[in-house]
Design a protein around this nucleic acid. Structure first.
Lengths: 333, 333
DNA sequence: TTGTAGGCGTTATCAT
DNA sequence: ATGATAACGCCTACAA
């Protein structure tokens, strides 16, 4: 029995093969529980069936990274989709792009998903590795070509929540989020897209936005705590509703407000973004903008697979958002 | 220049080597940004530097697996520790042990961490793969030998929370948790250890435990919802405090109680287990038992590395718990 | 329809 | 102090 025959069986090239040979090979394969050695496969053909999920947040961007439901959901749904498609997932949680490059080369990674990386990192990976790369939630430029990113309708999210708050009678609405410093004006950052949605909604309803209503929150938990505490002591700068860039920050702030003697929503209305599992299970339930984390992960893998099949493939996906009203917003006026 | 010489440089076997040769090799290595091919390494030596994290929960055990802060924290901290020690992490989220075995064989996995697996799975992996395996939170038997598990002081956790509730004047205390059906009486399950801590604390304070105060919660969200709703309508079977097996379930239940018109903690005191990040950020803050998820992940990797160095190594680690008082428990009497 | 031979990149052993 | 060679397991092209 020669290796070729076995290889043919393994790869289903059983067209013109003696049925009894096939039988014999099959049964031995089954009996010995044969498993192909991936090391040899990497060496032999040039394919590893490995896809890397790179988590590139700096610790100061996502301090509670590990307990972050967004990151956890992405890891889980990406792994699942990768496995269902016959690939394996290497998890690599490192913002150092040089080390990511090394890892990818060492393992002959066939495709890469980038989470929390910068725009230039995306291009660097594709250029230096010459493998398909899909990013999740990267900021993008309108003129980007061949840049496969899975993002969200952030602008629409900012807009629909603001319109909801306005529909509940609010006229003085604050917006608070982590905002990356955009040096390049042509780059659309995630938070600035939401901010723009908020601003446009306000403008469209003839409402002015005071400068102090827009707050860039700190990435450090204590500083952020101090920021919202100051805001409460300034009686919210006159705002009756506050729209936060994430549910986590909205809940965090709500706690501080209560400590400062303000009730939610009686004294201040609060809204978030993400619709984390707990949002609807709290009292008061949190008004928020729903996004589907798992869908994002699955979608990223699907886009990657398309890109692996067709290197010329390009797309700019923006997954839909949905308004989730909640008790944390009071109807006024 | 021969491959051997280069290999020697790569592995630091530069003892009796001409300094200039070393220099030359080094500089070429640096210039070309040489990265060793892991496929070839797997084939050459018998080591892959791969550690697998197997997540083996059945979907009905952890329905919201992906957004579960416990699982997310473990994934993150395990990856980090693995990487810091020069290994790579393969994430494999599959309860099918046959497929896990296949994967491990295909990749020449050097070590394995099992999360959410059964006791017999642990033994099967070690037996069939002959590689070091560490489990996290597996149930265990007192007489287990060579079974490396990283667990928690569950009994103590159950006890200290119950004693806290008693110290706050509660005498009628309920315990609610997912509980695995223990067929083997010598096996100590995680939830039953906590239950025992609860029972012992009650007994030690001369308090009787009525049968209906101990509830086995369903793994299905809707059923669980119905269970706690019924409980509320039965006026908590006379209990003044309820101790839940996890923060997530405590918060979930608290929401149902409010829907049914009961206030926490005025009408019913509630306590959880885990100390998830949100527990302290809610109003009322949740009384809970703290466990450190990330420590568990790091610890599992450390134990695995020890086991990889010394195949005879054995341990049974139980990480400490800590009481976290909270506003969700009212002082009565 | 099946067998043979060479190559993939690395390591270990042995020879120079 | 360096080089040659075989082996690791699989794949492919070509030969029989």
């Amino acid at each position: 029995m020669s290796p070729t025959t076995v290889s043919n069986v393994l790869h289903g090239r059983t067209g013109r093969m003696a049925p009894e040979t096939l039988q014999k090979v099959q049964s031995i394969l089954d009996q010995t529980r044969y498993v192909s050695n991936m090391g040899a496969q990497i060496l032999g053909r040039h394919g590893s069936r490995l896809i890397a999920l790179i988590i590139a947040y700096y610790s100061y961007e996502k301090e509670s990274l590990l307990e972050d439901p967004f990151v956890g959901s992405i890891m889980g749904s990406v792994e699942q989709t990768i496995r269902e498609n016959g690939y394996f997932m290497m998890l690599y949680n490192n913002p150092d792009m040089d080390e990511c490059l090394q890892m990818a080369r060492a393992w002959n990674i066939e495709g890469m998903i980038l989470l929390g990386a910068q725009r230039q990192d995306y291009y660097r990976m594709r250029r230096e590795l010459k493998i398909p790369v899909v990013s999740i939630d990267s900021c993008y430029r309108r003129d980007d070509r061949g840049y496969v990113n899975v993002g969200l309708q952030d602008y629409e999210g900012g807009r629909i929540m603001t319109e909801y708050l306005i529909s509940q009678g609010h006229k003085k609405i604050g917006y608070l989020a982590l905002m990356q410093n955009g040096t390049d004006p042509s780059v659309v950052y995630l938070d600035s897209a939401r901010l723009k949605g908020y601003e446009d909604a306000m403008r469209n309803h003839g409402l002015a936005v005071k400068k102090e209503w827009v707050t860039k929150l700190s990435t450090a938990e204590e500083e952020r705590d101090a920021q919202v505490r100051q805001l409460a002591r300034r009686r919210f700068d006159g705002c009756t509703a506050l729209f936060f860039g994430s549910d986590a920050m909205a809940l965090e702030a709500a706690m501080v407000f209560r400590q400062e003697g303000f009730r939610v929503p009686e004294d201040i209305s609060v809204a978030g973004f993400d619709n984390i599992r707990l949002a609807s299970r709290l009292s008061p339930s949190l008004a928020t903008v729903d996004q589907n984390f798992e869908q994002k992960g699955r979608c990223a893998v699907c886009e990657l697979l398309k890109l692996m099949r067709d290197p010329g493939y390009s797309s700019d996906i923006r997954l839909p958002v949905r308004l989730v009203p909640g008790e944390s917003v009071r109807r006024i006026g």
